[in-house]
Design a protein around this nucleic acid. Structure first.
Length: 156
DNA sequence: GCCAACGTTGGC
DNA sequence: GCCAACGTTGGC
């Protein structure tokens, strides 16, 4: 079983890579996914041990800023069951969850973040899903091993 | 704050 | 099942 690579988007004002590093056990639930394609990646395609590039969006300089690891199976998102949560969804039940979370573990904050502008300029990285207008809404996207290795060359 | 892109909803 | 209207995302 090989390791898959992913890219996960987070707004740094909500939860940044720096918040992640300071989080207890450097482990946090990845929750609030309310997009079906992202849900399917999270629930069906991710495997424990997979690596994910951590991307800061909706900020002055959108960038890949670090690396995290998927450390749990998919679990029902409890926020979907809480009527007071902005992520509440009455169609989700404990027996039949509609939305899911994964626990992630912080691995690394890159010394040199890789900006979206740089991603778009690179012939290999410009093929990444995140670089394409219209796919920017996808909060979880797959990354190839070639793309991942290319990112590593920049952030070293 | 603008707006392109596109997912979701709901009437038919 | 089509598709118009609407809502959301997110770069700029």
């Amino acid at each position: 079983m090989s390791v898959n690579y992913w890219l996960l988007k987070s707004e740094p004002t909500e939860f940044s890579i720096h918040d992640f590093k300071r989080h207890p056990c450097q482990t946090a639930a990845w929750d609030g996914i309310r997009n079906y394609q992202a849900r399917n990646y999270l629930r069906d395609s991710m495997q424990i041990g997979d690596l994910a590039l951590f991307y800061h969006s909706s900020c002055p300089d959108p960038s890949i800023v670090g690396l995290v690891r998927i450390v749990s199976e998919a679990q029902g998102d409890p926020a979907a069951l809480n009527p007071k949560s902005p992520y509440y969804d009455p169609r989700s039940t404990p027996e039949n969850p509609r939305w899911f979370i994964r626990y992630l573990h912080w691995i690394e904050t890159f010394k040199l973040p890789l900006t979206l502008a740089e991603i778009k300029q690179d012939p290999i990285l410009s093929t990444m899903v995140v670089a394409h207008i219209g796919r920017t809404r996808l909060s979880i996207s797959p990354v190839t091993s070639i793309q991942y290795e290319r990112v590593r060359q920049f952030v070293l």
